[in-house]
Amino acid sequence: MQPISVVKGEYVRELLNKGIREEGRGMLEYRSIGVKHSVLQNAEGSAQVDMGSTKVLVGIKLDMGEPMSDKPNEGNLMTMAELLPLASPEYETGPPSPDSIELARVVDRGIRAANVIDLPALFIEEGKVWNVFVDIYVLNYDGNLFDACALAAMTALSNTRMPKYDKEKDEVIREGSLGKLKINNVVTSCTYAKMGNKIVLDADGAEESIMEGRVTIANDEKVVRAMQKGKRGAFSQQDIEHLMEKSFEKSKELRRLIENAKGE
């Protein structure tokens, strides 16, 4: 860890002990969130999310491929996350770290469990299905990658062109008048950090540096779709029940952001 972040960590710990956060933010308040959709042209779908200084980009590509052997009549969803070395002095090049694998899998789990994409509808013909690639690029790290990435992935999927498959020529048409990838549900996630007996929503980098426990709750309008507890710290059953309650409230704000970031 950089020396400066140790000092900063101690500073936010002192603030939290007094029950306050930087810039007067409430305990369960998000930083300002910017959502932009279709920021790239070549990708079938894309979105950029800024959550405070955390900046993530998601690109969606659809390719024709083979179905998985255990699901011959369904398309595939593949989610990967790259913690790019340009995003933080802590990130290094190399094979995917456990952190990036966890991030991708938790985002994937929310989308999958909420049936956001109608995978059976991505079946083309025997042995041919659409593969949906959700590639998460972390451009700048300042905490709460889980919610930023889930929001970017959901926004990008809501704005994804559906390519066509030309059977005669056996080729994929990616340009011209195309429909949209059909979206069946909207899922968002709220991630809470626990330090001592304090729990905060949307921890920034300094707060995450002193975070003992973390829990992500992904839900749609009605039910909880995915959860993931991380780090050394523990949560009580009462904590989880309280945070689920809060997630249903908070997710309304996030859903509105996705709703507003919708093109034609």
Binding site: R109, G110, R112, A113, A114, V215, K222, V223, V224, R225, A226, M227, Q228, K229, A234, F235, S236, Q237, D239, I240, E241, M244, E245, F248
Partner: peptide, 30 residues
């Protein structure tokens, strides 16, 4: 779960569960 404290040390979930079902599930696990 750590049985001495009742602390939840790992929690993962996917699918669809209501708030109440999650709560009941935790009690069931304990």
């Amino acid at each position: 779960i750590g049985p001495r404290t009742g602390d939840i040390l790992l929690l993962q979930m996917d699918g669809d569960l209501s708030k109440e079902e999650v709560g009941r599930g935790l009690t069931m696990a304990k």
